[in-house]
Design a protein around this nucleic acid. Sequence first.
DNA 1: ATGAAAGCGCTAACAT
DNA 2: ATGTTAGCGCTTTCAT
Lengths: 327, 327
Amino acid sequence: MTRPAKRTTSADVAREAGVSRATVSYVLNNRPGQSIPEATRRRILEVAERLEYRPHGTARSLAAGRSDIVLLSVPDLPIGASISRFTEELAAALAENGLALVTHLASARGRPLPDVCATVGATAVTGFTPFPAETVRALQRAGAEVILPLTAPDETEPMLPVGRLQADHLISRGHRRLGYALPAHPRFTAMTGERLHGVERSCATAGLPAPVTATVGLDPESAASAVDLWTAAQVTGVCAFNDETAVAVLAGARARGLTVPTDLAVIGVDDIPVAPVVTPPLTTVRFDLHAVARRRAELIVAGLTGSPAPPAPTAAAGTELVTRSST
Amino acid sequence: MTRPAKRTTSADVAREAGVSRATVSYVLNNRPGQSIPEATRRRILEVAERLEYRPHGTARSLAAGRSDIVLLSVPDLPIGASISRFTEELAAALAENGLALVTHLASARGRPLPDVCATVGATAVTGFTPFPAETVRALQRAGAEVILPLTAPDETEPMLPVGRLQADHLISRGHRRLGYALPAHPRFTAMTGERLHGVERSCATAGLPAPVTATVGLDPESAASAVDLWTAAQVTGVCAFNDETAVAVLAGARARGLTVPTDLAVIGVDDIPVAPVVTPPLTTVRFDLHAVARRRAELIVAGLTGSPAPPAPTAAAGTELVTRSST
DNA sequence: ATGAAAGCGCTAACAT
DNA sequence: ATGTTAGCGCTTTCAT
């Protein structure tokens, strides 16, 4: 389980290659502006390889005054797959720039983010939603040089138009009165506003009344009550915050003897694995954080190198409607 | 986005408190064996607080020769919630011991684990499944002192008895011929064996024939074919690898006009959020990695401090059957 | 009871 | 073209 294992240091490589540590450092980081003979270079590389040399990240960061570490703060939400995709893509994009990504799961019982930032020595910190001002300050004191997204509405990427896509789809199908299914779990409240807002805007521009909101928990009864509410308001199509909530609405409709989509159409968000196999198969909005992640990586790299922010985002890329039979 | 923000160092605190850096270090880490007057101690603490001093983790690790960082490697599986629970619990337990947890999502396109381990300077590395010998070696060279779980079958915690629980439940309900629904996604194959095995053992000890396995993808047709297979084999109850697969089986049964649970009983694993709201509500096995995480944390702490491993695990704790109407 | 000083492994001026 | 030399911020003997 434990092994002392003395690590190979750059001094070892230097000695073995018959050069100085500086030279080793130069070729290993292939610093520009240094003209090192190809022979020496190869020799050093070869020795490093043979000795299985791994630069000591800690020492390197300390000396350089900056680490190659990016810390991603993920909320303790059951967002499942999307988050993995985002993380994976972000890690890949950062890796291309020589940066390493590690994740911190935000939780009251764990260590606070700024703390972790300080102990790992992260140079940049990112998250899904903007950090509160106080946290930003703490992160800065912890050594974070770039922190994204910030609350400033201009530099952050455009939010995904999921609410709009849901509503537009329903509206194009002829629905005139929409309902919105809010998730019961309080942890979601931070994300809830944006999506609902999109639906509201779509209704407004279509000249329709605002959506009738109802909170639906993950149990048939809760969903049934919401359905009653919508029925009374003559709602014929409901946008759900996410697929889980949408499936609950399906159950609620069934409990009330309504058939989907004829009596009530429902559309979710996420395209969770079970979406195609529930009854009826769920229409949903699938989004791929791929694009967002790449842009985020670009912004981080830009922030770190001081270069100007890359060109504006390509808007809604990666957000698509998956039409199945629930609408 | 970026701010120079000079950090407060321990030297600042020392100067401000009128003591030496050594003293500051002593009280901040409250090293035993040093007798520092309560007055000095309070003063230092107070100054540190006022200056918002955060120890520079990187420098600290370099000097101490060991960091407080534990790296968790998570597989790129859509395991969703369980994994979050585990991570959260592990982070909390480690935090109690002054250790910080960060996560690395394994992926071909990101940086390899040993690399990340070296750059963050992790002292311990953990994962869900044992690391291959080669990786272990690389991690050791990267500076990891404790690596868990190892392939040694004795030191690892006992596997969760999910397969057994599923089968026993069905058997106790009178089913004599069981089916097993394997997930189609190849990423799951690593986990598949253990659960199926549990079911097989239960069947064997109950004197029943081995379960009839069928692969079911997340689409109604695939599930329907599987159902045909089971029907032909007179299977009346099926254990699914996970809830997603179970829901697919539900769809397959429906497609063939079978009613659940009368014609075919199905039981899943995970208790995903939609389990209570599908039709019919899904019986499932819920397991809480809580206990596993705590034990893991104990093992890590023990390994790091050189103390003996804590008492043996409390077996199946945290694995429970959630009975709903699909069985 | 507290301070001085020597590094930890590496990078980056500055020399040569 | 390569080596020398200071540190980076902290811990930790060893003195005092």
